[in-house]
Design a protein around this nucleic acid. Structure first.
Length: 267
DNA sequence: CTCACATGTTAAG
DNA sequence: TTAACCTGTGAGC
């Protein structure tokens, strides 16, 4: 489920498990063989996430950049790891730990030099999960744009890490129509929207799941039931709004499924 | 079990 | 605009 929270969760886990020691890196699938050879046996210094991008920084100065895309997954496994299952692009083993990880199906898995890392982070916008996020700058750019806020929230050069689920859910929570142009978003609305992302996304990092439904709207299920509803509008087209019972609306916006409540988020 | 669909992005056409 | 990536999940049988 790779929106930004997933990558930050993976980065935190990898940092805990692998940083500070040499790691073994290979590419059983074969499509990352050359890159793996560059960092195999090197000391992993730090793992971090920037939006939906994962960075493994090595002491030798090289960085492995991973973007999961829609299908990519890391499976974390305790050693000894079993036989390779499926198309494992990158396998990383901690030389001095009992852990390993397999990467399958990523959009990107490549070794970057420092200038390339700088170029990558330079093209990403404010990440609600990072302390160095510049939300004022993001807000200023949004309020200058006539594009719909539903599209702007998905633009990684403006806000990094928000995807299709958080986009729909945060707009619902803030009562903002996704069709509202950026120019119509007030500074107060932007501040509240940003604050909500800063509140919501760490929950996803901690739990590994998106929990955006407030307890008072969590009708019919005990709060600690793992099957409790976790979204207000995402993938709920035609179902009653959890707040006002209006059927949730759906349409494709820029090739992505968009969901909203026409009553709670009036145009 | 099988099948449709999905949280994202890039490159080709 | 479309295909590719090629895994995981959940619905339905």
């Amino acid at each position: 489920m790779p929106e930004g929270h997933t990558l930050h969760r993976i980065a935190r886990l990898h940092h805990q498990r692998f940083s500070g020691g040499a790691v073994r890196v290979s590419s059983p699938q074969g499509r990352f063989t050359e890159g793996a050879a560059l960092v195999d046996g090197q000391v992993l210094e730090r793992a971090e996430a920037y939006g939906k991008h994962l960075l493994h920084h090595y002491a030798c100065g090289l960085t492995v950049h991973v973007h999961l895309g829609l299908y990519g997954t890391f499976s974390e496994v305790e050693l000894p790891m079993g036989a390779v299952v499926g198309q494992v692009r990158m396998r990383m083993l901690g030389a001095a730990t009992e852990f390993g990880t397999d990467l399958r199906g990523p959009t990107a898995c490549e070794v970057l030099m420092p200038p390339e890392v700088d170029a990558l982070t330079a093209r990403l916008g404010a990440d609600p999960l990072r302390a160095d996020a510049d939300h004022e700058r993001a807000g200023a750019r949004i309020r200058r744009s006539r594009r719909a806020i539903g599209a702007l929230l998905m633009d990684q050069s403006l806000i990094a890490g928000v995807g299709n689920v958080y986009r729909a859910e945060v707009l619902f929570r803030q009562g903002i129509s996704p069709f509202h142009p950026g120019t119509a978003i007030t500074p107060a609305e932007w501040d509240a929207l940003w604050a909500d992302l800063v509140e919501l996304m760490p929950i996803g990092v901690t739990t590994g799941r998106m929990h955006v439904v407030r307890p008072e709207h969590d009708i019919g299920a005990p709060s600690y039931n793992k099957d409790r509803p976790r979204t207000y509008v995402y993938r709920r087209a035609g179902e009653p709004c959890r707040v006002c019972a209006t059927p949730i609306a759906h349409q494709v916006m820029e090739a992505r499924n968009l969901f909203w409540c026409p009553t709670c988020q009036p145009r």
